[in-house]
Design a protein around this nucleic acid. Sequence first.
DNA 1: AACAGCCTGCTAAAAAACTAGCACATCCGG
DNA 2: CCGGATGTGCTAGTTTTTTAGCAGGCTGTT
Lengths: 127, 127
Amino acid sequence: MTAPLQLSRRERQIMEILYRRGRATAAEIHQDIADRPSYSAVRAHLRSLEDKGHVRHEAEDLRYVYSPTGQPAKARKSALAHLVTTFFEGSPARAAAALLDSRSARLSEEELDHLSGLIEKARKEGR
Amino acid sequence: MTAPLQLSRRERQIMEILYRRGRATAAEIHQDIADRPSYSAVRAHLRSLEDKGHVRHEAEDLRYVYSPTGQPAKARKSALAHLVTTFFEGSPARAAAALLDSRSARLSEEELDHLSGLIEKARKEGR
DNA sequence: AACAGCCTGCTAAAAAACTAGCACATCCGG
DNA sequence: CCGGATGTGCTAGTTTTTTAGCAGGCTGTT
């Protein structure tokens, strides 16, 4: 039974920060939130997210450090899949192409090599 | 002055369907919504989205056909950027690598060729 | 013309999200 | 030992979101 991804705006903001940082205290999250609400509000949301099972905390150094319960890998994959179906007609290739677009990002030599390698691998497996 | 993406949960659902389909009637959107609300509710949201400038409609065949106002390309780019910073530490290369992962999708020969081409191009421009 | 079917606009009210602030605990420096 | 700084739990209130349903328009059919 996986957590039913139906988060509100604030909850999503918080989850995203957590995914980005891996783990964070309420104060850190509060800091990171763009449209900053009250510290209190953040804490309340964290508790609520914990209730719903999206987040867990461990006491550390007198305060709580929160982290997402879901495996980051899973979350990543699911987010990618969602984006691909929403914006790229379900085609991962198109999404990848958009990422490779040189206008938006320049990749290092190593990264390019790595990607080439992946493509080669895909070629072999496809055959 | 572009529309400030501050949508509620339902509004987001609707916008995503619109991006996915390009254009759709209220009934079609209603159909597509996972956690289905009332038809009436969908129409209300559409009107509200139109007020906020996220959506436009044209009368067609006695009913309204809605479509996103924003350029799809812009939306795509922004969604990608957001996802990359949230889940891939800001590295487009890692995101691309995830997309190429053969376990999640097998790409056609043509797609692979195309991607190789893009990588080559990036190599040249990087130099 | 009267009706059913499908559509829109609108509004009031229910539901959910969001928030502030209090009460209480711990730690630390004076 | 006493305040200030920082933390949490909780609860009640406000604001926003989400919803249903009414009123009415247009079409085509009988």
